[in-house]
Amino acid sequence: DDSGLPPLMQELTQRLLSHLQGLDRQVQEIDKQIKQLARQSQVCRTLEQVPGIGPITATALVATVGSHINEFKNGRQLAAFLGLV
């Protein structure tokens, strides 16, 4: 190997790279599961029609607000509840 790194550093770098690749696979799998969950929920599909809201935001909003959505008189109250205003 002509990287110029000592063998110990090469081994540590390879271990770190393998760990990062494993984390990347886990993130991809979780992302896939979230997208599947969002497809199964009519509320999520409706939320995704709003520009800028994708599966992650839609499922997070549904998880946060849940069935309490009717307790908000308007969008401004919901935004305040979420800390957006």
Rank of each mutant, 00 (worst) to 15 (best):
L8W: 06
R15T: 05
S41L: 09
L12F: 00
A60D: 09
R15Q: 12
P51T: 08
Q33C: 03
L17C: 10
E48A: 04
I56Y: 07
G52R: 02
R39W: 10
N70I: 09
Q36W: 01
S41F: 02
E29Q: 12
F72S: 06
A60C: 11
I30L: 15
P55Y: 11
Q49L: 03
S18H: 10
L82F: 05
A80Q: 15
R25T: 02
I56W: 05
L23Q: 12
S41C: 03
L20Q: 14
I69C: 10
A80I: 15
K35C: 13
S67F: 01
L17A: 13
A60V: 09
G83I: 07
R39V: 10
F72N: 09
P7A: 13
L82G: 08
P55F: 09
R45V: 08
V50C: 05
D1M: 14
A63Y: 03
E29P: 05
H19R: 13
R39H: 14
L37I: 02
Q14N: 15
A60G: 11
V43G: 01
R39I: 10
L61I: 08
F72W: 12
G22I: 01
A63W: 03
Q77A: 12
K73D: 11
G4N: 14
A38P: 08
R45G: 08
K73W: 06
I56M: 08
T59H: 01
A63H: 03
Q28V: 00
A58Y: 11
E48D: 04
L23K: 05
V85E: 13
T46D: 11
L16Y: 04
A79G: 09
P51I: 06
Q26D: 10
N74E: 01
N70V: 13
L23T: 03
R25C: 00
L16V: 04
D2Q: 03
T59Y: 02
Q42D: 13
A58M: 08
S67D: 10
D24R: 03
L61V: 08
S3C: 09
M9Y: 02
N74K: 07
N70Q: 13
A58I: 05
L16N: 07
V50L: 10
Q49W: 00
L47P: 11
H68I: 07
I69W: 11
L78T: 05
I53N: 00
L20N: 08
T46E: 14
Q40L: 06
L84F: 06
E29A: 15
Q26V: 07
V50Q: 01
S3P: 02
K73T: 10
Q14F: 14
A38E: 06
G22P: 04
L47T: 14
R76K: 13
Q21M: 13
Q49M: 07
V43H: 04
P51V: 05
I69V: 15
T57P: 04
M9G: 00
I30C: 08
